[in-house]
Amino acid sequence: EDYYQILGVPRNASQKEIKKAYYQLAKKYHPDTNKDDPKAKEKFSQLAEAYEVLSDEVKRKQYDA
């Protein structure tokens, strides 16, 4: 799945936009606030993985290549 789609940001998003999108979605899908939703944990880990790659310039360049 596309990391940009997961975070809901365009491919040319700035680091600030990526961070903002991640924090909004992380708050929304955090397992502690969605105890009754088994998919929230999965969504949250996808968000974390996408953010880890896109927030790191080197990893992001490799991902975009």
Rank of each mutant, 00 (worst) to 15 (best):
L25G: 06
Y3E: 00
L25K: 07
A13T: 05
I18M: 04
D2H: 04
D36N: 13
D32A: 10
P38L: 10
A26N: 05
E52V: 07
V53S: 03
K35H: 15
Q24S: 11
H30A: 09
D32P: 07
A13K: 00
H30G: 11
T33M: 13
K20R: 14
Y3T: 01
E52K: 08
E1I: 14
K59V: 03
K41R: 15
K43A: 09
D56Q: 02
S45L: 12
K59T: 06
Q46K: 13
V9I: 11
E1P: 14
K39G: 13
E1S: 14
A13S: 07
A40W: 10
D37P: 05
E49K: 12
K28S: 09
Y4K: 00
N34G: 08
V9G: 00
A21D: 00
P38D: 10
S45T: 08
P10M: 07
K27I: 15
A40S: 09
Q15C: 07
D32N: 09
K43P: 03
P10Q: 12
S14T: 15
E52I: 11
A21L: 04
Y63P: 02
E17A: 11
L25A: 09
A48C: 10
D64Y: 01
V58W: 08
A21R: 08
S14L: 07
D32W: 01
L54I: 04
Q24M: 15
A21N: 05
P38A: 12
A48M: 14
P10I: 03
Q15H: 10
K59Y: 04
E17S: 08
E52Q: 09
Y4W: 02
V9Q: 02
G8D: 05
P31L: 05
I18G: 00
K20W: 15
N12I: 06
A26P: 00
K61Y: 04
L7Y: 00
Y63Q: 02
I18N: 00
A26G: 05
K39L: 13
S14Y: 03
A65Q: 13
Y23R: 13
I6V: 11
P10T: 10
I6D: 02
L7K: 00
K27F: 08
S45C: 10
F44V: 05
K43Q: 08
S45D: 13
H30N: 11
K35P: 14
R11E: 05
A48D: 06
E57H: 08
A26M: 12
Y51D: 01
Y22D: 00
K41A: 15
D32K: 09
K61M: 07
P31N: 13
V53Y: 03
D2I: 03
R11K: 15
D37H: 07
Y51Q: 02
D56W: 02
H30R: 06
V58K: 09
K16N: 15
E1N: 11
K59S: 06
